[in-house]
Nucleic acid binder design. Sequence first.
DNA 1: AAGGTACTCAACCGCAAATTA
DNA 2: CTAATTTGCGGTTGAGTACCT
Length: 334
Amino acid sequence: MRKPEPSSCSSSSSSSAGKDIINVQNSNNVKLRKGLWSPEEDDKLMNYMLNNGQGCWSDVARNAGLQRCGKSCRLRWINYLRPDLKRGAFSPQEEALIIHLHSLLGNRWSQIAARLPGRTDNEIKNFWNSTVKKRLRNLQSGSPSPNTSDSSSPKHQVMGGLISMQEQAAGIMPMYMDSSSSSSSSMQAMALNQMVDPLHMFQHDLNMSNNIASGYFNAPQYMAQIDLGGDDLPGGNGALGDVDIGFDGEMFVPSLESVGIEEKVETENTYRRAMNNNTFHNTNNNNNINRAENLARVGNCWEVDQELRMGEWDLEELMKDVPSFPLVDFQFSN
DNA sequence: AAGGTACTCAACCGCAAATTA
DNA sequence: CTAATTTGCGGTTGAGTACCT
């Protein structure tokens, strides 16, 4: 282990992370550009990657004729140019899953991103830091989120539902809501997550919008195979509203004092096992296989069977019952 | 319409792990 | 085995933009 060379991408020629184009020199006196990528640079990198695949990133930068360091090329490809990237706002399911995964994984953005194909760790990190963190803060202070006032956008409808849940939660379990430390943030998210169960959201979303749920699984079939109605889950009573993501019913809030992480995970696992065994595994179709192959061909950064480990406990074991998104792609038709 | 504030997101930095020579 | 290099990650910054007063 050693520090990177001063001439590398982390050159201290500028402390700005801003978007001005700044030229720095590497050890070969070749000027390296920094800052925003031009469309021409994007084209060069895209063409090179599609034709040659991923190799050593410094070679990519050189061979593609880019005056960028390899690190910059890698970042640009992973966060912006990769053909499998999703665009647009996070779906309610993705949002719920992020909250859920963050409660399990903390700030391990790359591992969270690995469960959300088409999303990058940077994207998720930004989403968390700007949107979710703010909501947790509002929850902590008890003040309503400014976002809740905008009920016109679908995203805000969903998150408005989230907020109202958070506000309910704030009165119930204030002990989890009073610190900005990361661990406490995780606890907040966990507390939140106990009510914002992604599976519950999946189920409700399917209930109310089978007509728009498309992609790799058949929603009506799913409903027929497993009875996971809101009444079956500890997070809801099945009395679902028509706009918010179904939190307007009364909430069952488990005692947090009595539910540790392991218990919580096991409780959730109980519900997820049936789901995974009966539904998701049956949906592994050719689309997914081909997609995975294509991604491998262009050097994609996530792997379907990525092995996950965290600290001293077996992350894979912990995560095995969390729906794996490579098997379920939420694409909504217009 | 103008100025101020809040928010988003692309891109940077530093560090550490992994890999290669 | 060691040093050098590459890769990957999480934290942070700041320009651009949307929203508010």
